[in-house]
C-alpha cells in the first residue's frame, strides 16, 4: 500500500510536469496548426535561464520562476517573426521539419553559452525536505509541482473561457478568415499564441530545474514524451493534455515500479493503441 501511494504521488508529479510542456504544445498546434518539435528545447531554455538567474546571479528562485517564462516568451516572439510565420500555409509536416531545425539550433546554442557540464539548482529552503502525508514521507517539492500544474491548468481554463484574449485565441484557431473579418489582428494573435505556449514550456523548465539535472540533453529527452502525451490526450485538446499527462505519468510511475522489463516500450504501445483506436486522442474532437 505504501509503495502504491508513493508510486501514485510520483505519477502525479511527473504527470503535472509533462502537462506543463504538453499544454503549450497543444495550444500552439490548436491555433497555429504547427507541431513544435523545438518545444522541449524551449523547456530546456527555461531551466537554463532559471539556473542563470537563481544560481549565477544569486537572485532568488522565485524571481527566476517569473523571469524564465518571460525570457523564453520573448525569444519565442523572435522565432515566430523570423521563421515560423513563413510556413503557416504549408502542410503540417513542414512545421515538423522547420521546428526540428530550430531544435538543433537551440540545443547547440545552449551548449555554446552554458557549456555541456551538468548544472543544478537548489530548491528554495521552504520547498526542500519531506512531509508525512497519506502515511508516507512525501518530498515537498513534488507536492509543489503537483500544485503548480493544477494552478496553471485552472488558470488557463479560466483564461480561455472567461477572458476576451482567450476567446480571441480560440476564434483565431477555429477560422482565420472569419477572425480577420471581425477585426481580429490574426498575425498578432499567432505571435502571441506561440510566445504564450513557449512561455508555459519555459515555466515548466523553471519548475523542473530543482529536480532535474540541467544539461543540453534535457530537451530531446522530453519532447518525445510530450508527443506521447498530446497524442494520447488528443492533438490540440486542452483537457486532453491534462489526461494524457496523467496517463503517461502513471505509465512511467507505476510501470517502472511493477513492470520494469516493459518500462521503455509501454508508452509507445499506449500511443499506438490510442492512434489506432481513436486517432483524435481520448479527448479529441471526433470530426476534424
Amino acid at each position: 500500500m505504501e509503495s502504491f501511494i508513493a508510486a501514485l504521488m510520483n505519477s502525479l508529479a511527473l504527470g503535472m510536469l509533462l502537462f506543463l510542456i504538453a499544454i503549450g504544445l497543444n495550444i500552439i498546434f490548436g491555433v497555429l496548426n504547427i507541431i513544435n518539435f523545438a518545444h522541449g528545447a524551449l523547456y530546456m531554455l527555461g531551466a537554463y535561464i532559471t539556473y542563470t538567474v537563481a544560481v549565477l546571479t544569486g537572485v532568488s528562485f522565485w524571481i527566476a520562476l517569473f523571469a524564465a517564462p518571460l525570457i523564453v516568451a520573448a525569444i519565442a516572439v523572435v522565432i515566430e517573426r523570423v521563421m515560423l510565420h513563413r510556413i503557416y500555409d504549408r502542410p503540417i509536416t513542414d512545421s515538423l521539419l522547420l521546428t526540428f531545425a530550430l531544435l538543433l539550433i537551440i540545443d547547440e546554442t545552449v551548449r555554446w553559452i552554458w557549456g555541456s557540464t551538468i548544472h543544478v539548482v537548489d530548491p528554495p529552503a521552504s520547498l526542500s525536505g519531506t512531509v508525512r502525508l497519506l502515511g508516507i514521507q512525501q518530498p515537498v517539492y513534488g507536492l509543489f509541482v503537483i500544485a503548480m500544474g493544477l494552478i496553471v491548468g485552472l488558470g488557463l481554463w479560466g483564461f480561455f473561457s472567461g477572458t476576451r484574449a482567450g476567446r480571441v485565441m480560440r476564434a483565431a484557431a477555429i477560422d482565420r478568415k472569419m477572425s480577420r473579418l471581425v477585426g481580429i489582428d490574426v498575425p498578432l494573435v499567432f505571435t502571441a499564441v506561440f510566445a504564450f505556449g513557449a512561455g508555459i514550456a519555459g515555466f515548466g523548465g523553471a519548475i523542473a530545474a530543482p529536480i532535474r539535472a540541467i544539461s543540453p540533453a534535457m530537451g530531446a529527452n522530453i519532447i518525445v514524451e510530450s508527443f506521447i502525451v498530446v497524442v494520447i490526450g488528443g492533438l490540440g485538446s486542452f483537457p486532453g493534455a491534462f489526461l494524457g499527462a496523467l496517463i503517461l505519468g502513471a505509465i512511467n510511475g507505476f510501470g517502472s515500479r511493477y513492470l520494469p522489463e516493459l518500462n521503455l516500450v509501454m508508452p509507445y504501445i499506449g500511443m499506438a493503441l490510442v492512434l489506432l483506436l481513436k486517432p483524435q486522442g481520448l479527448m479529441g474532437r471526433t470530426a476534424s
Binding site: A101, L102, L103, I105, E108, W112
Partner: peptide
C-alpha cells in the same frame, strides 16, 4: 548548429 541553420 550549422545543420540546423541550413535546414531551416
Amino acid at each position: 548548429l550549422f545543420l540546423g541553420i541550413v535546414l531551416a
